[in-house]
Amino acid sequence: MSISVQEADFDAGAEIAALSAGRDDVGAVASFVGLVRADKAAAGVDAGATAAVRAMTLEHYPGMTEKALEAIVTEARERWDIYGVRVIHRVGKLLPGDRIVFVAVASAHRGEAFAACEFIMDYLKTRAPFWKKEETPQGGRWVDARESDDQSAGRWKA
């Protein structure tokens, strides 16, 4: 299964190894790991203070989430000659430093692996129905979408 939406943590090394296990045509595996940041500035706390974001809860739209991720992976496979893809997105409560998202792409050469990995992340950020709610000393707060994420996704338009 190339796509997982789960509460459990993941082992990035094992996932990367699995993408080339038992085959000799993979020349490149590019991967990305996203982590929960204790974002002080966004929470209105000065940088010298203790961690502002205490925890984060990831909500998603069960059913649509998987479909949206599958559509993104399918589009990546149409654009680049890639051999394998693994996408993992965690949901539920996460703490600063926790792994939250993993994308890895196997291909013959690095160019396609890098490009497809970045494409999948950019589209995931703008098309997959996940929402982050941060717990801060001032209370709970839904994270605002960033325009820069739309711009990052927009540069892949054909």
Binding site: L58, K125, F130, W131, K132, V143
Partner: peptide, 10 residues
């Protein structure tokens, strides 16, 4: 039919 704010995963 679903309504929701802009997504913020990743």
């Amino acid at each position: 039919v679903a309504f929701f704010p802009p997504v913020t995963g990743g």
